[in-house]
Design a protein around this nucleic acid. Sequence first.
DNA 1: AAATTTTGCAACCGCTCGTTC
DNA 2: TGAACGAGCGGTTGCAAAATT
Length: 256
Amino acid sequence: MAPEDGAVKFKNTAQGSGDGGGGNDLTKGLWTPKEDALLAKYVMENGERKWNDLSRKFGLMRCGNSCRLRWFNHLRSNLKKEDFTPEEENKILKLHAKYGNRWSRLARHLPGRTDNEIKNFWNTRLKRIVRAGLPIYPPEILSEIRHRHLNHQQVEQPQQNHIELSSSLSLSSPQNPEFSSFPFSSYIRRISEVDVLNDDLVYFPPTGPPQALNLRSDRASTIPAIISNDIMAATCSRRSTTGEIYVPNHPNIYTP
DNA sequence: AAATTTTGCAACCGCTCGTTC
DNA sequence: TGAACGAGCGGTTGCAAAATT
């Protein structure tokens, strides 16, 4: 299909602030070369800001967020267009083991790559390896993770040794029945390790709900969790600005 | 060769947070 | 102080291309 044919008009009814519009006819779908040129011209003259002005003052009938994505993911200079190199792929695996699905953070470590690109790479890869019954992370990365985990426990949190890595609960195995009901597009690990691997001070006291301390200023991220040795739920925990972790009610959540 | 299914990626959606007024 | 706006994020969807039947 020619790019021009991919774009469709729609009546914008979204009230989302990021989408701008306010009832204008906005275009959706694939971008045309003409639109790209308009967008590039706008950025040259105005910088990477005020994206909603593009439709309001510049005649580009796209919502502001769509313009921003198009620019950052495709048009700006210094973007790498070729496939990921083996080195980059390896780096993504390591970073994902450390940060989880924080795509923008991963992208910061890979010059010329976008969060969207990395996310697509990961999701595609994940589908493939889950189907093949392979580990999510290769053995060398797994051992690195375990090593880091053990060091952290010995040096900083010897009192938390009651939460031990279970050799029978492989961090990497989607075939493990204990993981079977969880969505593998998500980042899955035992919650007792999330605190270590993400450098987030999330801790799980012997009694009471999970606690979070000293969180970084990054945006909320999804932390599916498997809580405690009793193998509890994977669910979403939302981080708030006040540094709390919200664990939604779930029949399988372990709350001593 | 045609029909169907799968794959990969671009784009959209809904949400949150920070800033401005 | 709070509403409106702008920006950014992760999850999801839509669809063209490729692969398979």
